[in-house]
Nucleic acid binder design. Structure first.
Lengths: 208, 208
DNA sequence: TGTACATCAGTGAACGCGCGTTCACTGATGTAC
DNA sequence: TGTACATCAGTGAACGCGCGTTCACTGATGTAC
């Protein structure tokens, strides 16, 4: 068995990444030290340096782990989407997005809390993810046939809306996920219909 | 002049609060030390302790200052609102809200970046402010006559939408403020009309 | 107004603590023959 | 298969640095008379 040492090393690396996320989630960024991370993983403090060059490195790897797991959830549910009527399709998109995040509440909270961090690997990664999602949404809206001069602002608004509702659910201000889905679909649907029925005019006529 | 000593003390306290916000904005929370704050205010490091019991205290006072100044801006513009037709009234609300924040870009960025902080005076204060704004919006929607089962989710969505767009403007992803106003008014207006025209049904029928 | 004394904002110097980082070491795992 | 050697994940101990916090001091401002 020539891989056993490699494998166990990889396992403790993952334990350390878990521990990093755990400390960050339970005690906040101010409490994030190499000592606490190692302790949470059941290891001696210098072991941290066997796996990471420094905290920056550890956080980068932790951010990657968070992103990967959330993306897996989002893809799982997107693949399972069954389209029926247009209204229900819209609801489905919002519903599955919220559901995907809510399957990983800790990771989602880490994402929501740290996506504005400056000068932190978490902030960088999470911001990149948000930017990508926003760009993809804007493309989707274009593909659906929307021709508004302020499509980017719409994408920004919709992403903000979804993340806002998500936050409300995770922090317990909103209790009913299906009502949240309805609210998103109501707002998004009404706006879509207005844009399609009225051509580009409702928003475009008064713009720039 | 029996107030001169008191007055100069108050002035240096304000200088220290400014310095706190400046360091936080320019170098991030990780760089926020009593030494850097005092230096940024042109004072010796122990002077920090003449005015604050500790960092927590300084941040609490700094958060108060941020909140007060932003609220002043929001009130100024709210008072100046002139109502014309309903559509324009809606645009005015979004426009003046965005404008108010954009008059204080640094403070707004601090607010946006730190409103999710856990275990920090900034986070606590800023979250309280957001919560209040959301509650007031929900009340307003009720007062306008909306009777949706998911009004709270709507409020959550609208606040998220506004803050998302605001962030896009401040971080340079959105260049045109008036287009952003149009997008918000378009989305918000369409959703409002749908709710009013259709009674409580469009969102209520499928809810809970 | 002038003088002697009290107050107090701001400071330099010193201290201790927690943390990151390094390093020599250990003992278990892997390899050569 | 067995033995001697090499590798390397994980560790205890030690070190230095930056920071928060304290304290005695100073000199300017305020007060009493």
């Amino acid at each position: 068995m020539s891989t056993s040492r490699k494998v166990t090393k990889e396992l403790t690396r993952q334990k350390l990444i878990e521990a990093t996320l755990q400390v960050l989630h339970e005690q906040g960024p101010a409490a994030l030290t190499t000592g606490r991370i190692a302790a949470a993983a059941g290891l001696a403090q210098p072991t941290f340096y066997v796996h990471f060059t420094d905290m920056e490195d550890a956080l980068t790897q932790a951010a990657t782990a968070v992103e990967e797991r959330l993306l897996v959830r989002l893809r799982e549910l997107r693949d399972a989407l069954s389209v029926s009527d247009p209204d229900e399709a819209l609801r489905n998109i919002f519903r599955s997005t919220l559901k995907a995040f809510m399957l990983e509440p800790q990771l989602t909270q880490l994402y929501l809390r740290h996506r504005h961090d400056v000068d932190s690997p978490l902030g960088r990664r999470f911001r990149e993810g948000t930017d990508r999602a926003r760009r993809e949404l804007a493309e989707d809206l274009r593909r659906v046939g929307l021709r508004l001069p302020n499509l980017d602002a719409h994408a920004e608004a919709v992403v903000g809306m979804v993340l806002g509702v998500l936050e409300g659910l995770l922090e317990g201000r909103l209790g009913d996920r299906e009502q949240a889905v309805e609210a998103l679909a109501h707002i998004g649907g009404a706006s879509l219909r207005a844009a399609v029925d009225g051509g580009a005019s409702p928003a475009g006529s008064a713009g720039a």
